[in-house]
Amino acid sequence: MMKTSNQALPEIVSAEQWQAALDQQLIKEKALTRAHDALNAERRRLPMVKIDKAYTLAGKTGPVSLLDLFEGRRQLIIYHFMFAPDWSQGCTGCSWVVDAMSHPAHLHARNTSLVLVSRAPLEKLAAYEKRMGWDLPWYSSFDSSFNADFGVTTEQGEKHGVSILLRDGGELYRTYFTGARGVEHLGSHWTYLDLTPWGRQENWEDSPKGWPQTEPYTWLRRHDEYDD
């Protein structure tokens, strides 16, 4: 017989008590969903800024313009992946986000393209992409002011984030940007963990006493490094 764990656990109740507690939780979650829908509606009504500057990025098939990244579609999601030119590998957290990205065909069906852009030279991006087993459009802004102009390379270093662009004919506009924890909904691993009793198991979370917790992000690894 398997030995009972000494780890802190949620309260054990009857099936009826569990269902009652769940029903109350779902009322709050539905309210949050509606609030999130309202926030999304506000985002769709944000003003936008025209992109007048011409950028040339390096891609697998050669130099490309910002317009080329749309691949003829109307909307473009750019994930600013942290990978500086002098780094030997990409950011751990950004790698988490990319691991969770869905098949692009679902975005294409809604007239939307998704690309990654980093400052590291293309050969470094290609080597890391092969190691990670990814197959997403990834472009280097190494010889461009793109990262600085979009606010993701500063005097303090590299930043991650996501920019949303809209195309009207040949005119390009930036409609939205978020960084820091604003990109978490792109990395569904966090969403999955948020559903579990122990959550993300980080010490900023409001969890019952005795729950396993560590400092934020210290436990993250690239998917081929956990055995280390």
Score class of each variant (00 low, 15 high):
residue 3 K to V: 14
residue 3 K to F: 12
residue 8 A to S: 15
residue 8 A to K: 13
residue 9 L to H: 10
residue 9 L to K: 10
residue 10 P to R: 04
residue 10 P to A: 08
residue 11 E to C: 13
residue 11 E to R: 12
residue 11 E to P: 06
residue 11 E to M: 13
residue 12 I to H: 14
residue 12 I to F: 14
residue 12 I to M: 15
residue 13 V to Y: 08
residue 13 V to T: 15
residue 14 S to E: 10
residue 18 W to Q: 12
residue 18 W to L: 14
residue 19 Q to H: 14
residue 21 A to H: 07
residue 22 L to I: 07
residue 22 L to C: 08
residue 23 D to Q: 13
residue 24 Q to V: 13
residue 24 Q to R: 15
residue 26 L to Q: 15
residue 28 K to F: 11
residue 29 E to C: 11
residue 30 K to L: 14
residue 34 R to W: 10
residue 34 R to N: 15
residue 35 A to K: 09
residue 36 H to Q: 15
residue 39 L to K: 11
residue 40 N to Y: 08
residue 42 E to R: 14
residue 46 L to S: 07
residue 48 M to R: 15
residue 49 V to T: 12
residue 49 V to K: 10
residue 49 V to S: 12
residue 49 V to F: 06
residue 50 K to V: 11
residue 52 D to Y: 02
residue 53 K to T: 14
residue 57 L to E: 02
residue 58 A to P: 01
residue 59 G to V: 03
residue 60 K to W: 06
residue 63 P to G: 05
residue 66 L to G: 04
residue 67 L to N: 09
residue 69 L to M: 05
residue 72 G to M: 10
residue 73 R to F: 04
residue 73 R to Y: 04
residue 74 R to G: 02
residue 75 Q to T: 00
residue 77 I to S: 05
residue 77 I to K: 06
residue 79 Y to S: 01
residue 80 H to V: 00
residue 83 F to C: 04
residue 83 F to W: 04
residue 84 A to K: 04
residue 85 P to N: 05
residue 87 W to Y: 10
residue 88 S to C: 06
residue 90 G to Y: 00
residue 91 C to Y: 00
residue 92 T to W: 01
residue 93 G to H: 10
residue 94 C to H: 01
residue 95 S to N: 11
residue 95 S to Q: 05
residue 95 S to P: 04
residue 97 V to F: 00
residue 99 D to C: 03
residue 100 A to V: 02
residue 101 M to S: 04
residue 102 S to E: 15
residue 102 S to G: 13
residue 103 H to T: 09
residue 106 H to I: 13
residue 107 L to R: 08
residue 108 H to T: 08
residue 111 N to F: 05
residue 111 N to S: 12
residue 112 T to L: 07
residue 117 V to Y: 02
residue 119 R to P: 01
residue 119 R to N: 06
residue 122 L to F: 08
residue 123 E to W: 02
residue 124 K to S: 04
residue 129 E to D: 13
residue 129 E to I: 01
residue 134 W to E: 01
residue 138 W to C: 04
residue 140 S to E: 00
residue 142 F to H: 15
residue 142 F to I: 05
residue 144 S to T: 05
residue 144 S to C: 06
residue 148 A to V: 11
residue 149 D to F: 03
residue 150 F to P: 00
residue 151 G to H: 03
residue 153 T to P: 02
residue 155 E to D: 14
residue 159 K to F: 09
residue 160 H to C: 01
residue 161 G to A: 05
residue 168 D to G: 03
residue 169 G to M: 08
residue 174 R to V: 08
residue 175 T to D: 08
residue 176 Y to K: 07
residue 180 A to Q: 12
residue 185 H to M: 09
residue 189 H to M: 14
residue 190 W to P: 01
residue 191 T to D: 07
residue 192 Y to F: 13
residue 192 Y to W: 10
residue 192 Y to G: 12
residue 194 D to S: 10
residue 194 D to N: 10
residue 199 G to M: 04
residue 201 Q to C: 11
residue 201 Q to S: 11
residue 203 N to A: 07
residue 204 W to F: 13
residue 205 E to I: 05
residue 205 E to W: 03
residue 205 E to R: 08
residue 206 D to A: 15
residue 208 P to V: 09
residue 210 G to C: 05
residue 211 W to G: 03
residue 212 P to A: 08
residue 213 Q to V: 11
residue 215 E to R: 11
residue 217 Y to I: 02
residue 217 Y to W: 07
residue 217 Y to A: 09
residue 219 W to G: 10
residue 220 L to I: 07
residue 220 L to C: 03
residue 222 R to N: 06
residue 228 D to L: 05
